[in-house]
Design a binder for these strands. Sequence first.
DNA 1: CTGAAAGCGCTTACAG
DNA 2: CTGAAAGCGCTTACAG
Lengths: 347, 347
Amino acid sequence: MSNRKRKDPPAYATITDVARMAGVSTATVSRTLNSPEQVQAETTGKVMKAVKKLGYVPQSAARNLASRKTNTVGLLLPSIGEDFFGQMLRGVEAEVAQAGYDLLVATKPESQVRVRSTQPLGRHNTDGILIFTGNIFEAEILPMYGEGFPMVLLYQSPPKGLKIPYVTVENKDGSRALVDHLIEEHGYRKIAFLRGPEGNEDSHWRERGFRESMERHGQRVDESLIEPGLFNEEAARQAVTRMLAAGKDFRAIFAGSDENAIGALTALAEAHIAVPEQVAVVGFDDLNLARFTTPPLTTVRAPTEKVGREAVATLFKLIRGEVTEEKVLLQTEVIIRQSCGCIRKEA
Amino acid sequence: MSNRKRKDPPAYATITDVARMAGVSTATVSRTLNSPEQVQAETTGKVMKAVKKLGYVPQSAARNLASRKTNTVGLLLPSIGEDFFGQMLRGVEAEVAQAGYDLLVATKPESQVRVRSTQPLGRHNTDGILIFTGNIFEAEILPMYGEGFPMVLLYQSPPKGLKIPYVTVENKDGSRALVDHLIEEHGYRKIAFLRGPEGNEDSHWRERGFRESMERHGQRVDESLIEPGLFNEEAARQAVTRMLAAGKDFRAIFAGSDENAIGALTALAEAHIAVPEQVAVVGFDDLNLARFTTPPLTTVRAPTEKVGREAVATLFKLIRGEVTEEKVLLQTEVIIRQSCGCIRKEA
DNA sequence: CTGAAAGCGCTTACAG
DNA sequence: CTGAAAGCGCTTACAG
């Protein structure tokens, strides 16, 4: 017969088992594992032997509950997977693991329909979160923000009034350098620009870079040469087809993104317009496939993995209560291939 | 003055706060949240009102500790990020979230040097894990296997003797169908094959498919036309360059993977050999960039996202103690583009 | 349908 | 340097 409260022994060793085998208290086992400098060498030896022998691994739940921290970082992703996603995750994971933390990954529920009790990531299961997702609405983060819960934004600035650190890439400088190249090296003047989705920050700054370069070179930008590409291949294809049908005159297209550039390339090919001989095309992002387009795409490379690393580093500062930069801006680099008209090949 | 054990109240509401506000016991709050059917409608109402008002979210650590389960699934990744990684993660995340579980992601520590106390993922922080990583060594999973800890392998079969379910794609059938196409539609006979890394299972089965197709068509396979491509662009380039230099005679290359195919394409371009007119090239995987190679790559598409979903579904069966298939094999599909010699374009 | 209370497996002031 | 014991915030038999 069994006592009411005596459950079957767990399938795993607990701290009590280790303490018993080593002949010490559980407090000492805990200290041996967490702050060995507080424990005598001889004791450490006994404890570690027992740990090894029993294959003891501390239960995260118990540890978290007692220490009031989760040792876990959350990463909130957009529902749709970006193409450079793997690289970013690599940076995040590496940095998180190095700090001995765990990484919890979740996707932002698409709609309010999915009545999951609450946010998938928050104070209840993480010590802080990284938010990498298109449109953050204030309502979604305000409660956490109000509590001072540590969070860092990726590729986007916080809603007005909220002081949340964010890390992103230098869209404007990269774009300006790219357009500078088009103007200075190739002498193009009539340059079209394909915008990203309404309200997209990357797009905003890329357009700014485009305009700055034009202005600095004394070029008036022709507003009729600015069309929405939406960072979407098909939409970009249609936009370029439309401009062509309307008889618009342009010598180059700064597509705003590689995705847009692919759509532009398709539209141009369908219209039998030679790239770069008749119209040059350049993108932004340097997706893996940028080397393989016809012709290979001149574009701007962003340090995606580093964005991940920096974001985690910033989050840890927040978690430790240190001050952080409001904004970390990572430099980009123009990658010259052939779609701009250059003949030199990639290094 | 403060009592020794009275800490500062937590920054968040606990179940006790909810119980107090609703005028019920914590047990009732717990039941309302976890098995509402056991609670009277009126009580549920009071509790939920308090939950809402306080913004109460149960602490995962406390819940996990008390319930002896983590409600979390682990995903173990190879240190190097695959190109199709995002898709797989999407499948995994969707399925995990739908079940109301959390997803913990970790990378296999590259070396034994990094003395992290233990495995990043295990019984201490998950209810089961998905292993998606190149070379699983028996030693790494044997302890968990011995305890009957739920795990599922992705893209690889378990070490001999271990009964661990796995899900992967039909490499052999896909490869055979692809080579059938080369032989039946284009009449190629002399076909080279580029192997993956030694011991790689995908490569093994792709080679089997290749050989079966050749045999069924009465073709003897020329062993001197089989070279290591290592699923690595550069190695594949060198392999093809080597075959060319040795004066080997072949009309087509089944590159074994898209990565290999890209290397083959490069080698051929460098040797001024026209693809597909002089030598056809086909791959396997259908990476995003396969549409953009010159010429666009004929290849085999694997249902990557579905692999993720199926793996999670299988893992949940294991967690629930149900029987599972030993092996889930997902069908692949030949994608005809132009590198094989076809002129029809992709749908 | 609901409550009192034990227990989950740790950590950590406090005391020595 | 070490131990006794309270406490972390939940869940869940048991009893009613």
